[in-house]
Each structure stands twice: as C-alpha cells, then as structure tokens.
C-alpha cells in the first residue's frame, strides 16, 4: 500500500525548472530516503507535498486521496530551516503547534506530557525556548514535528544542526516511529545515514529522478561481479588473473572479475592455488552509486 504517490509533477520558478515529470511512490511503514545534491529539487518536492507552494501540474495522492488541506493533519514536517518562538514557553509552544495541526486541546496536552517525559524534558516545560540549551531546543523541535502522531513524517536534512548525542536520540525515535507504522521520508545529501536507516531511496538530480528502489535492489543492480580475494598462494610465482592490490609477507590481495562462472566455482579454483584468507564481492556504497549515477546523467 502506498501512502504517498506522485505522478508527473512539474514545478518551475520563472525560467528555472525545479521538478520535471517527477514520479514517486512511497510504501507505508517504510523509511524512504530522498537523495540529491543541493538544488536538485528535494526541498521543492517536499514543500509541494506540504502544500507550502503550489505545483504547476501533476498529481499527488496521500493514502489514495488527492492531496488537500485536511491532509496537514496526517503529515509531520521538519523543514531544513527550522526554529521556535524564542519567547514562548515549551508547553505553550507545543500546544500551539499541535493545535494548528488539528489536535484537540485535551489530547494535545496529554501527548505533550508523554513526549516531554520520554525525552527527559519534563522539568523544562515552563521554561522559554531562549532559556534552553541548543540540544534541548532541538528535542522540542522534534516533538513539535511528531506531536500530532502523523502517518507520514517528512524530515528535510533531519540531522543537520543536531549534535551527535541528540542525532542518535532522534535516530532511535525515528526507528521507533517506523516500527509503530509511521512512514518516514527523509531528505538528505549525507549518504552515510541513508544506508543505515532507509529501506527505500530515490535519487534526484537536476529536477529529475535518476534512480529509485529498495537499498537491496539498488545495490544488487550496481554489483560489478568483481570479487576481492585475499590469499597465501602455495607458490610465490602465482600470478593472479585480476588486478593486483597488495603483496606483503607472502600474502596476496587482488580483484577478480566473475565471468561465466558461479562464485563457488571461482572459489574452488582459487582454493587449489593456496590458502584463502578472504573472498568477498565488491559492492559499491550508496554514495559511490550516487556519484556514478550523477556523472552518467550529466553525460547524457
């Protein structure tokens, strides 16, 4: 079941095309990574889904319904540029954000108490934001995003500005929300967090989607059939068939491309030549795939 689906979305600012014939579908209960360099169109896409700016053309569906104003109740949004009212007390602020999302006052109050307790902020509830440390303010910001228990959580560069300790706390909260059935779309240009968190990704470059799928299938497709072999050959005269990487104290490390064989056949062949210390397939990281794809798309 798709919680968010987008069909041939277009958006331009004057002569600048921000999104061109953009399609996207996000499955329920998954963490979906939106990758792309700065200026690729991620923020425009996110702002359109959040109904902050209007699309030029195309269709957007939330749970199968065409996007409308009532859907703000179902969406939680943490923009890249974020902040809070500095002079407002923590609980008043959270109450306000919950209410404009459509929560009733009593429900909102209960949820605020629970969240403040969960993130160890209870004794700060009557303090103004300006009296809080940056880390605490960031936690309040996160609560403000999820307080109305959205079905779809959209996080734009969620870890930027967070210190490592808080980033870890937030990461765990994101995973917990996913386990509760919340779908999370996170946009980032940092690849390291993507591989750890995301189930599915889409890559955007220059207003177009250049790749999407589950992390597994993307990596599967990006496989080069090249193996890294580490062995102590029986004879020092042994010359590997692939590119030699290292030779030290009788140990040899080299790359080997799989041709019309199965990995096991290759391994069997290697085992007859000496003692195998390591045999693994070289799989490019998401970052490498990303850079390769961008270069390909620029070459077009």
């Amino acid at each position: 079941m798709e919680i968010l689906s987008i069909r041939s979305l277009n958006k331009s600012y004057g002569s600048h095309v921000a999104l061109k014939d953009f399609d996207l579908s996000v499955s329920k209960g998954k963490i979906f990574g939106l990758l792309g360099p700065n200026g690729a169109g991620k923020t425009t896409l996110i702002r359109i889904v959040n109904q902050i700016i209007d699309k030029d053309s195309g269709e957007i569906y939330i749970n199968g319904q065409a996007l409308k104003m009532d859907h703000v109740r179902n969406i939680g949004y943490l923009p890249e540029e974020r902040g809070l009212y500095k002079g407002m007390k923590v609980k008043e602020q959270l109450l306000y954000f919950a209410q404009i999302k459509g929560l009733r006052k009593q429900d909102a109050k209960q949820k605020i108490t629970n969240w403040l307790e969960k993130l160890n902020l209870s004794q700060w509830k009557d303090k103004k934001i300006q009296d809080l440390s940056k880390g605490m303010a960031q936690k309040v910001q996160f609560i403000a995003t999820v307080i109305h228990r959205p079905d779809l959580l959209i996080l734009d560069e969620p870890f930027s500005g967070f210190d490592p300790v808080n980033a870890e706390i937030i990461k765990n909260e994101i995973l917990e929300l996913r386990n509760q059935g919340v779908t999370i779309v996170l946009s980032t240009h940092r690849m390291e967090s993507v591989e750890l968190l995301c189930d599915e990704i889409a890559m955007i470059n220059r207003s177009k989607k250049i790749l999407d799928g589950t992390i597994q299938t993307i990596k599967e497709e990006a496989k080069t059939n090249v193996f890294r072999v580490k062995m102590i050959p029986d004879s020092m005269e042994y010359v590997p068939m692939g590119e030699e990487l290292r030779r030290q104290d009788g140990m040899l490390e080299f790359k080997l491309e799989l041709k019309d064989q199965k990995p096991n056949e290759l391994l069997g062949m290697l085992m007859s030549k000496g003692e195998i210390l390591g045999f693994e397939e070289i799989v490019p990281s998401i970052e490498e795939i990303f850079i390769q794809k961008i270069n390909e798309s620029h070459g077009e």
Binding site: V72, Y77, P79, R82, G83, I100
Partner: peptide, 17 residues
C-alpha cells in the same frame, strides 16, 4: 520578520495557509 528570521515560518505554513 521574527517568524521569518527564526525560521518558524515554514513549520507554520505547513499547517495552515
């Protein structure tokens, strides 16, 4: 200006027009 410079604005306009 306060809402704009403290970057609250984008959170607000994702909830109301």
């Amino acid at each position: 200006i306060e809402e704009k410079s403290s970057r609250i604005i984008e959170i607000l306009v994702s909830s109301l027009k």
